[in-house]
Design a protein around this nucleic acid. Structure first.
Lengths: 340, 340
DNA sequence: TATTAACACGAAACCGTTTTCGTAACATTT
DNA sequence: AAATGTTACGAAAACGGTTTCGTGTTAATA
């Protein structure tokens, strides 16, 4: 066992001062070539690497980013995370992940934990509970302390910071329009409760599209479900009680469950009922028929979020740049579950 | 904007020494109740929190765990990660994630980066390339430096450290046995190349089971495919050229693709062909028929890995405990894709 | 009253870096 | 020969904590 070597060790061994070693390794011209060579050779031999913690303390920069997401066993969040990690890594940053598990308290505790020096900035998607409570004091305090935050996907207007979001309303509009253009008129929406900004936007896009196509909005055709648990029963009832020829689902699970229910009830997808779901995940690609989906480009979103954050952290803080909200254009991927 | 307050600030403001403040906040009885109260009140008011970095430097403990996994958009790894994060969090640790992307170089670089003080220990699943090259010098060096490592799932015998693995051979044996018991005899295996320890174990379990049931091992019934890309063509050919009544697939993607191919060829699942796949992920639960799978209990695996690591890190290093290899018992979940 | 103990606090070292500043030794210029 | 400049290095402060040890003041004991 050979523990890590420090500047002090090198200095002692080579009978020079710590400062000399430090300078020599940074190729300072204050140090003679001879001494530099000796020190570098020694350092190389013993595989010297500066201690990150000491550097962090000195520089007041950790080169760590805190990522707080509601869930990790979740296609969209993992793709975003991959984008973040990729870009951060390229830029020399490491990523500390905390899972809020949709809980307000966990979100708060984790962020406060990390904020005490462990990270230089946050990338965050709000937990369900936080959105429901509409309480963002923890974020405000962190921003107040000068810690930059980038929100993605599940964002809020209450907080002024950089954000990356999807054009949810527009793409929902586009999807519904696609239904209309392929002959559908009894268009349903399966969604979650409205405290999610994304659900709200998607619902707005849905109603807007109906309106602009002069289709009356029937509240019975909007099914609001609890978050991503098995809702087969409710869905079955929904399709038995209503005449429906197209469904937009705000997530992949809903879409796949919906397809399964509809097929079980004897309908043909897409001829009797068209389905489009949000999130172009693995489920959509391996179902039959394959699900038409809305690709959210999570990886791109993650990269962008990381870029925004790192830019802000590394910008010379003289001119405070105004906060940006970047919008990612979702893509409607037409596959077998809709008429094309 | 109010930046973080430090001990020094409190000391200056209250006209005491830094040591006094530190002691007061730790409730040392060296300090009089009066002074303690004053200091605590002040600290509370200004929301003082000790700086993690300073603590890390002092204590030579970061309370960070490095997790290095080949991929994150992957059901099994995310479940393991969730287990790690959950346990680590409970124990006051944070988790830094690096994605090796199945690349040897990334694995090495990331680990060396983190090893310079950023973390106290690693939890790692080997990248494909690392397993192929069979080069573990980076791990050996880290262990040599006294940094504990826990390997999970994709492990190697070349390295002495704590490990958590699945009883892959046994559960493959059990699955094949299940096929035999339900009347199958032309049992195929769809697997990946053998440099993965897990593929090897699963293949061994498969052949063992056949042998013990006096079924001849037909190499034509073992299909070796590249890693998780679309192999529909090869699979179709495989099923056209061979008489097969059951298939064991070493991952979920293979299983779902396999089912799709088989159904496309006009076979009924499970009556003509039974299918069992590894990984009880989201695909298996939403296919039709639902896939019979082998649940790997990723979350449990992650928790256990974290527990092993933290135990080792926190154990008084007097008696070096011997390295353990914990084995997680997989569960065969019988669903619609096999005869039960 | 002199000695000792208890109390309450501060000084300083330490963790591992970086960086500013000071300076001894030598070289160059007037 | 005196003044100045250069070279090559070391001392020390700083980052923000913890902890050991020393010490002045008061209280208790002999």
């Amino acid at each position: 066992m050979k523990p890590k070597i420090t500047l002090k060790d090198i200095a002692r061994e080579l009978d020079v001062s710590i400062s000399t070693v430090s300078k020599a390794l940074k190729n300072s011209k204050e140090i003679s070539k001879d001494t530099k060579d000796r020190i570098k050779a020694f350092a190389k031999f013993y595989n010297y690497r500066p201690n990150n913690i000491a550097l962090s303390l000195k520089n007041k920069k950790t080169k760590n980013i805190g990522v707080v997401i509601p869930d990790i066993v979740h296609h969209f969040f993992t793709t975003v995370f991959r984008g973040i990690e990729k870009y951060a890594n390229q830029m020399g940053y490491n990523v500390i992940v905390c899972i809020s598990d949709e809980s307000f308290d966990k979100e708060v505790i984790n962020m406060e934990m990390l904020a005490n020096g462990s990270i230089d900035g946050f990338i965050l998607s709000l937990s369900a509970e936080t959105q429901r409570r509409n309480d963002f004091t923890h974020l405000k305090e962190l921003l107040d302390q000068g810690i930059p935050i980038v929100l993605f996907d599940r964002v809020t207007n209450e907080i002024e910071c950089d954000k990356v979001i999807l054009n949810d309303a527009e793409i929902a509009y586009e999807a519904v329009n696609h239904f209309v253009n392929t002959g559908c008129s009894k268009i349903a929406l399966i969604t979650t409760e409205n405290y999610f900004n994304v659900s709200e936007s998607r619902r707005n896009g849905y109603t807007e599209a109906l309106r602009s196509n002069d289709i009356e909005i029937d509240q019975n055709l909007i099914l609001t479900l609890p978050h991503e648990i098995d809702n087969t029963g409710l869905m079955t009832k929904f399709f038995q009680e209503n005449k429906i020829d197209a469904v937009l689902c705000v997530n992949e699970i809903f879409a796949i469950q919906c397809m399964s229910v509809v097929q079980y009830l004897g309908f043909n997808v897409p001829n009797d009922i068209s389905i489009i779901g949000f999130t172009d995940g693995i489920l959509s690609r391996y179902s039959s028929p394959k699900l038409s989906t809305i690709a959210q480009h999570g990886e791109k979103m993650g990269e962008l979020a990381a870029k925004l954050l790192i830019n802000r952290m590394e910008s010379v803080e003289v001119i405070e740049e105004p906060f940006k909200t970047e919008i990612i254009d979702a893509t409607l991927i037409k596959r077998g579950s809709s008429i094309n």
